[in-house]
Design a protein around this nucleic acid. Sequence first.
DNA 1: CTAAGCGTAAACAACC
DNA 2: CGGTTGTTTACGCTTA
Length: 679
Amino acid sequence: MFQCVFSSSVLQPHSTSCLFKHLFYHSATPASQKQPEPIYSKKTEIQRQTVRAHSVKLFIFSALQVARQLLLQQQQQQQVSGLKSPKRNDKQPALQVPVSVAMMTPQVITPQQMQQILQQQVLSPQQLQVLLQQQQALMLQQQLQEFYKKQQEQLQLQLLQQQHAGKQPKEQQQVATQQLAFQQQLLQMQQLQQQHLLSLQRQGLLTIQPGQPALPLQPLAQGMIPTELQQLWKEVTSAHSAEETTGSNHSSLDLTTTCVSSSAPSKTSLIMNPHASTNGQLSVHTPKRESLSHEEHPHSHPLYGHGVCKWPGCEAVCEDFQSFLKHLNSEHALDDRSTAQCRVQMQVVQQLELQLAKDKERLQAMMTHLHVKSTEPKAAPQPLNLVSSVTLSKSASEASPQSLPHTPTTPTAPITPVTQGPSVITTTSMHTVGPIRRRYSDKYNVPISSADIAQNQEFYKNAEVRPPFTYASLIRQAILESPEKQLTLNEIYNWFTRMFAYFRRNAATWKNAVRHNLSLHKCFVRVENVKGAVWTVDEVEFQKRRPQKISGNPSLIKNMQTSHAYCTPLNAALQQASMAENSIPLYTTASMGNPTLGNLASAIREELNGAMEHTNSNESDSSPGRSPLQAVHPVHVKEEPLDPEEAEGPLSLVTTANHSPDFDHDRDYEDEPVNEDME
DNA sequence: CTAAGCGTAAACAACC
DNA sequence: CGGTTGTTTACGCTTA
């Protein structure tokens, strides 16, 4: 019976798994063909993905065909046999697919969501890629589920009919066998999916962290609800038919919004968000997503939200979920229109992928450019107001002003925010150079934690970007980093120049500032030495400097202890204490978006909270803390109309990930040579 | 609007 | 004498 469609050279004629493989690779045409070579062999990876998407559609189509055929065959068999099946059929455990309600609907992120994500810079390019890949995988998976579901439905239907018709046990067994076969197919498909993902990973498209599950492939055989699956089946399969884009005018932007089914937070979130896999709190970043409202809905469905059908361009009001399902089945059945719309959706995803690729490339170029130009005249570094540099988390704004890198105090107008190195690029910053400046969001003394610097030291070393820390903080850091916890003025200078490319210029200015700070702040104590004098830090005094309130966004994350490069055991405690006060890590949005870093989020948060508590309880006069996120987020949160074409993906990237050639510390600096020695 | 923190500029003194 | 180290004052800007 399956010969035709199942024709696969690999497996036995009746092996349904063959069908899948076959279809998967030869989806070019509904009818199976035998050329095993991938139809996309010569395309770029992105293109391949695109092709794959099309293949999936075709595959589904084929699957549908098979399903139909199967059904017909079974019906024929029934008629032929004309017997009834006595008992044992109302439910056959073997045939029942484990149902796990909540997870059944893998979510496919809609363009809108994607855009939101992009705008908010929640994700790094890598993450976006992962997301896109996952989306594709999910689509495939979904489709498979549909298929499976359909099959199951049909089988059950058949069973019922058989029951009524008094079918013979033999028939039942056959049916059962078929079901098993389907399950096998599904398993195989899962494997295929995984292989696909692996290949993507290998090709660098998928950057999944080692410890992170590549993709939460949920067992297809699990968690399937007839109704849900049926819906999905219809939704997805509708993608196979005719071209025609009539009803697809509703641009991608009108496409539905996926709602998160949270009944199974873990699963759903995993699917929705890669970060969730490592950090169950990623939602913290995307709390405002409208999906939240749906989350609690018992019948969450990607195409249903707020009592409205979210099928692209539909928006039909549906009282309840049931009516919605009804609507979905009737209005969005498998027809040309639905198919076209589905196709559009796929294209949207593809477009996003391309966009991502472009942006990534651009980012790369920018980074390369900036690193290279660190030796050029200062025209360049415009430290961004964009929260860019990941690293600059806190008050990136504090970064130098436009053309005058050394005039940090002048925030001024938004200049062309040139992203520096590893940074987060926002649509906002890139195009609408609005006055998003959020200077000094946390200006005070932001004593950098060693981690801050450590995390981004490479960046600052090479990028002439003004570090978002106050002189006091930097000086303190320099001193604390020294073995003796004390440095001479000159050593402090050297530390500055060594650690920050920015301080390789305008020496007179910042050196004066350093001296000024040393003298001005009581926290810096001058200690007479045999051969002169050294400066030390009075941590208590430093903490006192300014009681700060915890503006509370507990979500600020800090990667404190994670980077100990600079954290000597000794000052760790102090740092931690001070951290509470200033914790503003260089890790904020960007870090959250990063799968790897994101994982540190919760831990860090806890740590931070702990530190804060500690500080609060011990330092009566200081209640430090500030809200890094607040400081950094403004830009991200800013809602900017996103131009589909120009939309700059929010690329957040991994900080130290890349930095170019190491800076030559010993070279002569423009304004004055710095002798590098001490330490 | 005010106060406080910060950065920058600069005057000035002591010292090497 | 010139440069470095320190101290101090003033001013402008930003944020709370």
